[in-house]
Design a protein around this nucleic acid. Structure first.
Lengths: 248, 248
DNA sequence: AGGAAGCCTTGACGTAAATCAAATGGGAAA
DNA sequence: TTTCCCATTTGATTTACGTCAAGGCTTCCT
């Protein structure tokens, strides 16, 4: 029933929390009005699958609240996460009929959906949408390449430190704070999901988290609540370039 | 001097080998004429660096002939290839002043370049360019995600088989043939470059190639010339879904 | 021809992370 | 409260891949 509520809920785009970061970010008032006419909301509970890889997918969407993951699975069950979707991130591909990955709601999730055909039509008539989508896709490609370095060359300890740094940075971004000094947040992923993200087993994830805790790089309360006493120290452990990656 | 020749050479876009696959693929005749006015060719010898990560990069470009790589390097020297650029692939990012990765010519290389500012202006006035670039970027993102599965979850043997399959498929595409039955081609990468691509050491690459050769999955003449007697067998070894990835 | 320099292969050994296997702890249901 | 169920932690052992080291095959240079 909560789900029904959400599906019926109708937000004004003007009030939307992702208005200035999502695929609609560059739209003018009139363009927004047209988008508003074709959009609809859908909600998913934590753990629910949004679509299975290979299934027909007749919509594209923006994550409004919550977290979703993209994962690939091999025939024998090995899994690799290939996308971590946060509020404002885009799901689906214009011009493609079937999903290429499993999409799963990691937390409760609300998405702002557009049926694919009307959205594609609007992309043609509204350059601002395509322009913004290109920008977002290029950002995702950069993130994917950073992730490839992590998967291919980092040690288990560096991988964990990197993931925690990524989550900390994003969390700080959503609250518009600069990651400096002590940071506090909750891990939105289980150990197993972290393992799927990092190309590790959940046992190794657990051991390395314990090690970082022992060494004072992170402080844990319970299993999810993290404090970072020194963010620069964490970045060192992550093996990242100290100069925060001078990408102009 | 060969390099000077190439820099001065002036191709008509109409004759260009990548006319129908590159960022200009969707352009009409008049749009092509405008592109022709701002383009220029540059050549690099095998092994030359095109740009260093972090350096100012005042152009974007399409690979016309040859192969280039994108790599990331950690402070201690660990390297991960994050892009393999073939004819028609796009280099650089509109709206970004500095290169995010090292770009290196793996073979002799010819690129069709555009100074960034005029190109960005044309993107705004010519939707076909932005549309095509979006499509290409989404394809690259898919490739990057396939690559992430490889890096995170595949064994050394599967990684090698996957890379050989990728090269075989691409080689067949460039010659417009369907990869079925026996395939013959040359590996465009050294063992070390393969290692950088796959997140392995060059010794492991060498050992696994020897193993695939012993097992009859591939036939090697010299160090570079490969014959694939049975492409399906190779895909099995790569751990890929048998159904060539039903991506609509 | 004789070296030298790159690539590449192969062998011996070491190690980080996987695997197999319990044990612990916290929250929900009864 | 007691019990059950999961997620997580921790321990013991195995193994795939990395590291270190030596040697072979081309190609190029003098």
């Amino acid at each position: 029933m909560a789900m029904q509520d959400m599906q019926l809920a109708h937000h004004e785009c003007g009030d939307c929390p992702i208005r200035h970061r999502a695929v609609c970010a560059r739209c003018e008032a009139d363009e927004l009005t047209r988008l508003e006419q074709i959009k609809y909301y859908r909600s998913y509970q934590a753990g629910q699958t949004v679509v299975w890889s290979g299934d027909r997918m007749d919509f594209v969407a923006s994550v409004v609240t919550g977290i979703a993951t993209l994962t690939q699975t091999m025939e024998d069950g090995r899994r690799q996460m290939v996308g971590l979707l946060l509020p404002s991130d885009f799901v689906g591909r214009p011009g493609r009929a079937n999903a290429a990955y499993d999409v799963t709601a990691t937390t409760d999730l609300v998405m702002c959906c557009f049926r694919k055909k009307p959205f594609e039509d609007m992309m043609l008539s509204t350059p601002h949408i395509g322009q913004r989508l290109l920008e977002m896709t290029l950002d995702e490609l950069d993130a994917a390449r950073e992730w490839m370095l992590l998967l291919g060359r980092k040690t288990a300890r560096e991988k964990i430190a990197s993931l925690i740094a990524i989550i900390a940075r994003r969390d700080a971004t959503l609250r518009l704070k600069t990651p400096k000094g002590a940071l506090v947040f909750d891990l939105p992923l289980t150990r197993e999901e972290m393992a799927d993200y990092l190309g590790l087993t959940l046992e190794t994830v657990s051991r390395q988290i314990s090690a970082l805790k022992r060494d004072g790089v992170i402080v844990l309360e319970g299993k999810r609540h993290v404090t970072i006493p020194d963010f620069d120290r964490l970045l060192e452990e992550a093996g990242d370039d100290s100069d925060g990656g001078m990408i102009g």
